[in-house]
Design a protein around this nucleic acid. Structure first.
Length: 189
DNA sequence: TGCCAGGCCCTCTTTAGGGCCTT
């Protein structure tokens, strides 16, 4: 396989049900480059998601911890995200923690809704699941949550449930772990 | 009122059940 670029991303959503939840925030990082977009979800935010993320919707506007947030329509956020991904030369592997089970299906469902999936997949042939990667690397760990891995390897806590911070931490963790190409290939989904 | 999903993985398994990881 030729060269590839690993871009780290994270979604904040209205809940955990990948078949019905809606995207609230998309963030991605590559080095110092950051992509971020907020969008007003079209379904209710579950009580637990609202508690964890601090997002709320009032009068059709998005708020984060009570402060108004600038948003764009979901289709526009997705198109901007595709433009960001297109700016890299060659294929992009989009990395997220538990990508296979959560971020990838949610993102792909949204892209499909706006008939953007094919365009997206021409840029992103695979997702990289750092949860699977962590399990492959360290078979006997008591936990593989992103928070645990960050605390263990980077010795720091961070603002989890902010998509940009989560993506930045994941990038830092990945570079600390320095997984071999073989391990990376085994964590593609 | 309801207190969410889901599929892999592990083991006190395989004639099953519970924990994990994401919001």
């Amino acid at each position: 396989m030729s060269s590839y670029t690993v871009v780290f991303f994270d979604l904040e959503t209205t809940g955990l049900d990948t078949q019905v939840c809606d995207i609230i925030q998309i963030s991605a990082v590559y080095g110092k480059r950051v992509f971020n977009a907020f969008t007003v979800p079209r379904c209710d935010i579950t009580k637990e998601a609202a508690r964890l993320t601090g997002f709320s919707v009032t009068g059709g506007a998005l708020f984060l911890h009570g402060e108004p947030v600038s948003t764009v329509p979901l289709w526009q956020a997705l198109l901007s995200f595709i433009d960001f991904l297109r700016s890299f030369c060659g294929p992009v592997y989009l990395a997220a923690h538990n990508a296979a089970r959560f971020d990838a299906p949610v993102l792909k469902r949204a892209l499909k809704e706006f008939t953007l999936l094919e365009q997206f997949q021409s840029l992103v042939p695979f997702f990289l699941d750092t949860f699977l990667l962590s399990k492959h690397l360290f078979p006997r760990f008591p936990s593989y949550s992103q928070r645990y891995m960050v605390e263990r390897f980077l010795d720091k806590t961070y603002n989890a449930h902010d998509a940009t911070e989560d993506a930045k931490m994941l990038q830092e963790l990945f570079h600390k772990l320095k997984p071999s190409r073989r391990v990376v290939m085994n964590a593609l989904v």
